[in-house]
Amino acid sequence: MLASLIYILIFPGFAFLGVFGLFAEFFDRKLYARLQNRVGPPWFQPFADFIKLLGKEEIVPCDANPAMFTLVPVIALSTVVAAFLYIPLWNTTSLLSFNGDIIVILYLLTIPTLAFFIGGWYSSSLFARIGSVRAVTQLFAYEVPLFIGILSAALLANTWSLSEIMTFYNKSPVLALFNILGFGVSLIALLGKLEKVPFDIPEAETEIVAGAFTEYSGKFLALLRLTLDVEMVAGAALLAAVFLPFGLGANPVIGFIFFIAKVLFVIALITLLRTVFARLRIDQMISFCWKRMVPVAILQLLICLILKGVIQR
């Protein structure tokens, strides 16, 4: 009982994820700034922002549904933290694991977007409503290539359990190299999930202010921003677990350093992508996802199927 509480609240639960998420935000912002030849924020900036937002007054719009409006940030944050509990850190076993957990992770990571939709919708601001509709429209576009990309890797490993996938690739790392297309597709889809350029359409600042978050303030906004940070870490950790299965099984300290390095590497790739692209329009984004990314993801699926046939023979 006590152990579970520690797992959930401290490590690798809320406390660790919160700190790591905020650090990841700093890493992302600092790298983004340096790529743009700027100085960037000091390391404590995301923490300071978070604490400042916690201390601010929160305003619930008159027309908004107060219950929905206030519940949404909590739901969003808790689902991403829950998803993280299924992802192994320094070895191949995670805190919670069963056959089929990879599907659960993917679904848990979808819930924040739906939560943003509900929050934006119930905040009854026009900007928030447009933003939330865009978020859901986008969801249907990037989710399919993301699922195909990640699940084709699982298919090759012949299991639906993340731990077993990692064990499989750890045994034969060469096979992981065949998943490179899937990695690319999932990385780009992750940009959509995290609402980052070029897919930051739901919160396009110059068009609809802050999208679904427009009416949020104070604690709720702090939680929503933390959700995005933690989601970034969880998404990066998932990609690292599935596509970069190296350096596992050694002693926990080295394994943990490897884990952090892998997550930061994925985040660095995300940052690089958001530095060199302009924001797409929602119609362009959807046609890009369906016409470019889905075929590549299906190609990855075919590669995995053929490879599987070769291995089994």
Binding site: L31, A33, L35, N37, G40
Partner: peptide
């Protein structure tokens, strides 16, 4: 963009 990383911030 990658070259900027090595440059001193402006």
């Amino acid at each position: 963009v990658l070259r900027s990383i090595l440059k001193k911030p402006a």
